[in-house]
Amino acid sequence: MMKFWLFLERLDRRWIYLAIGLSVIIPLIFPFNSPTTITPPTVNLWNYIDSLAETGKPLMVITDYAPSTSPELDPMSRAVIRHALEKDIPIIIYGGLYPQGFGMSQRVEQYVIDEMNHKKVNGDTIIYGEDWVLLPFIPGATAVIMGMGDDFHRTSPEDARGNSLSDLEVTKDVRRLGDIGLIVDISGSSLPRLWLQYATTRYGVPVGVGTTAVSAAEYYAFLQTGQFVGMMGGMKGAAEYEQLNEDLIEVKVRRVASIAMDAQNAVHIFIIIIVILGNISFFVMKKNKARRF
């Protein structure tokens, strides 16, 4: 037995990297379709977005992230936009306060639009300007939120394609941030807090958040107080949203995050095992060394 603990202690970490790599690859190739349990923060967000259909107010989806966190956040953006388009909720897609986000918003937009227009035929396809609008990057960070709060059209006179916002069905009546039904900020940074601080506290617009698992723990504090209407945390949150889309509004598409959950589960089990083994090994070796000296 001692030999085993000694082996563990001396194990080259590269073997662990390899094992983790395999725990990701194998479930991706041979999925075992683990069930997705849905948690209240995601349901709350889904319901809030769903209820916008009655008010007719637009939803603003902000892709405030860079490629480094896109595996977690892209599926969220896609699922939220998809949900809104299915329910005919007008959407303003916005790349957020930093330049990288604009690239992300273009990519996500293209993906969802292709998917939807591929499925639907002719008359039923979604149309730019009537169903959604893409905003350009606007420099100025906090000043941009404040500007939109006071006069939306002055802060962003044109969309990303050079049309005047007053000419587009989605944005022609959005005079201030207050005319937006909900802002969903999808970001791995502390930017959702900025939107909360200005958009909600100052202009009274509700904010929901989609965030990386790293930041999720931080945002629970704001979820508990009801400051965020709901939250998707990490890939699990995205998978939950995809599940809700499929169960409640019958969106049948490739569920990127849900496919990943098998691999996620496999790696988590592997990590739990090595954490336990590592700790036992640590204490056994410590005891053994103490005995020897």
Binding site: D150, D151, F152, H153, R154, R175, R176
Partner: peptide, 11 residues
């Protein structure tokens, strides 16, 4: 039935 309006338009 809505007989209230807030005039608050930057335009």
């Amino acid at each position: 039935d809505q007989t209230e309006f807030i005039d608050y338009d930057p335009r």
